[in-house]
């Protein structure tokens, strides 16, 4: 059975300025042990999607529809207690900023132990300490015996992210959701954390959903990529195809704007023109059409009709352009 199956997820936040349509019609499957990246810029809906999986979208007026089937059970229709039993045990989460993600008032050992104790009510204090010590050692914290009784502020950013990872893995989750796990870290530390996540995944066999804005991070550790724009999935493909044969003009634009280390000095960059749309006043039709270099070539279709995800080559793309043009996006000049 598919481990996680998201069907037609819609998330809307009501605000005084109007409805923010953060996620629209997102569907995807996660198989056991695989690594999937959700890539997008700010406002693309990637974090809202991730938070929805554990029902972590809070606010006065949040409307969610669709299905989030975890091994066949719909997270969205569960009772509060049922969701709680899923959180941290079946699906665990790593947040972006390790400096604020740990509770500053308790020792890291206590916090790791707590993550275990929540889902194992019978565990004794001694067991919990043992588990905390083991976890710290596994994620590469030196001198765990001394460190286990220290408070979060006594650790560096990279170390804290290791602790957050240790905490997330303490119950052997089936799915690990990592929301921008390295964005707040230095480059050299980022490399360590990515390596740790890959290593931990190999050990625990968890599936990983990596939320990121950084295509570089995607290339490092994932197998499958979903690109989101303005609340929709615009492309879904294997990591190789995403980079070699992108089948959506937005993905192409992203790749072109990424400053690869190999491009020469003072070479002209090719940015995507304009700015991402407001989620309150989305453009009609395809949300990307006002910034898309190809929209004019299809007459008015892009501004009137929203494209559905369809199979293009071995990828899936939400674009009206004919297949052969989508497959040749990287070759021909815009």
């Amino acid at each position: 059975m598919t481990l996680l199956s998201v069907r037609d997820l819609n998330v809307t936040f009501g605000t005084p300025e109007g409805d923010v349509r953060a996620v629209q019609g997102v569907s995807f499957d996660i198989e056991p042990g695989e690594t999937v990246a959700i890539v997008g810029e700010s406002g693309s809906g990637k974090s809202v999607t991730a938070n929805s999986l554990l029902r972590l979208n809070f606010g006065a007026d949040v409307r969610i529809s669709g299905e989030i089937l975890l091994e066949g059970r719909d997270v969205l229709t569960m009772t509060e207690d049922e969701v709680r039993s899923v959180r941290g045990s079946d699906m665990a989460m790593i947040f972006q900023d390790p400096l604020t993600a740990l509770n500053p008032f308790y020792t890291v050992g206590r916090q790791i132990g707590e993550a275990y104790a929540i889902h194992h009510p019978g565990a004794t204090k001694k067991e919990l300490r043992e588990i905390a010590l083991n976890s710290l050692e596994k994620v590469g914290i030196p001198e765990p015996l001394k460190r286990v009784d220290q408070y979060p502020h006594e650790f560096s950013g990279g170390m804290r992210q290791r602790i957050v990872i240790a905490m997330a893995l303490v119950n052997n989750p089936k799915i690990l959701i990592a929301d921008e796990p390295t964005t707040a870290l230095d480059v050299t530390v980022q490399a360590q954390i990515l390596e740790l996540i890959a290593e931990m995944q190999a050990q625990h066999g968890s599936a990983v959903i990596l939320i990121t804005h950084d295509l570089g991070v995607v290339a490092e550790i994932t197998e499958r990529v979903m690109v989101m724009y303005a609340g929709r999935v615009v492309e879904s493909a294997s990591v190789e195809n995403t980079f070699a044969v992108p089948t959506h003009p937005y993905t192409r634009g992203l790749l072109k704007s990424v400053k690869s280390l190999d491009t020469a000095r003072h070479e002209r960059l090719e940015p995507i023109p304009g700015t991402p749309p407001s989620l309150i006043k989305l453009p009609s039709g395809c949300p990307f059409h006002p910034r898309c270099a190809f929209a004019d070539s299809l007459g008015g279709r892009c501004s009137s009709e929203a494209p559905e995800l369809r199979i293009v080559g071995s990828s899936r793309s939400a674009c009206h352009l004919p297949d052969e043009r989508l497959l040749g996006l990287m070759g021909g000049a815009s």
Partner: peptide, 15 residues
Amino acid sequence: NEEFVRLGIAKGLPR
């Protein structure tokens, strides 16, 4: 609204 409280919820802490 603190991140660590969100992480507490994500851990499955009872309310």
